[in-house]
Amino acid sequence: MERLAAVSRLEEFLIFLGQITVLFWESVMHIARGAVSYRHTLRQMADVGVGSLLVAMITVGFSGAVAALYISPQLVKYGQAGFIGGLTGKSLALEIAPVITAIVVAARCGSSMAAELGSMRVTEQVDALRSMGVSPVRYLVVPRVLGTLLMLPVVTVLANAAGVLGGAMTAASNGVAFSIYWSSFTSITTINDQAQGLFKTIPFALLIALISCRQGLHTRGGARGVGLATTSAVVFSMIGIYVADYFLSVILQDTLTFLR
């Protein structure tokens, strides 16, 4: 019985992966054909970009401050204050900024995408689109994929800057001058680090938009179904982000060495 349940869950997971892949492929095909609603894409860009920017800057800003808070006393103690800016900057560029920004966007925008599409699904609005010969992928998914894809890197860069600033302020409170922090940041944090972090935002954006749209479009069961779709969109996106982050980090560490 337990084995049967496990097989059933594996089957569900494989179907889920298949549906995400189909959604990705159909989106790519629509984009390649130029079947893109620029008005809707701009709206999604505003939702992802403007809507998430402040939250991302606050969370990454404070994460940078906390990173510097833990690093600073130790390095100051051993006379290595010149590494604080670099280490904080590296952590932010490679991991903290892209991952936390992606989590913020998944929580704020992914949930909203799943809820909106889920609500449309249970009130037959998605079927209404199909009944008029309008592809729900073209009309609903493509603008969300493009909006997230275009704005997540921008939000990440600005959140990263907030993190660097947060780190500088904490370092300053530990007696490290801004010039030392900045000099350490510019000499230790490389373009490669920034590029790696920025590159990660592409798969993260795809994961957030595709998972959220998939959860929304497969919503069943009224208001409770919309709630479940919303929650699962955020949870699955978060898991996807962390799993992808590990594998991307392993791969990117070796492939972007030419930028060092």
């Binding site: 449309m120 009130t123 037959e124 079927d127 009944s131 010969g133 309008v134």
Partner: peptide, 17 residues
């Protein structure tokens, strides 16, 4: 999609956007 675009469908609860 081409066939559907030649038909109209009135849903039970309207399904207005």
């Amino acid at each position: 999609d081409n066939i559907r675009s030649e038909t109209g469908f009135v849903f039970q609860y309207g399904a207005l956007f």
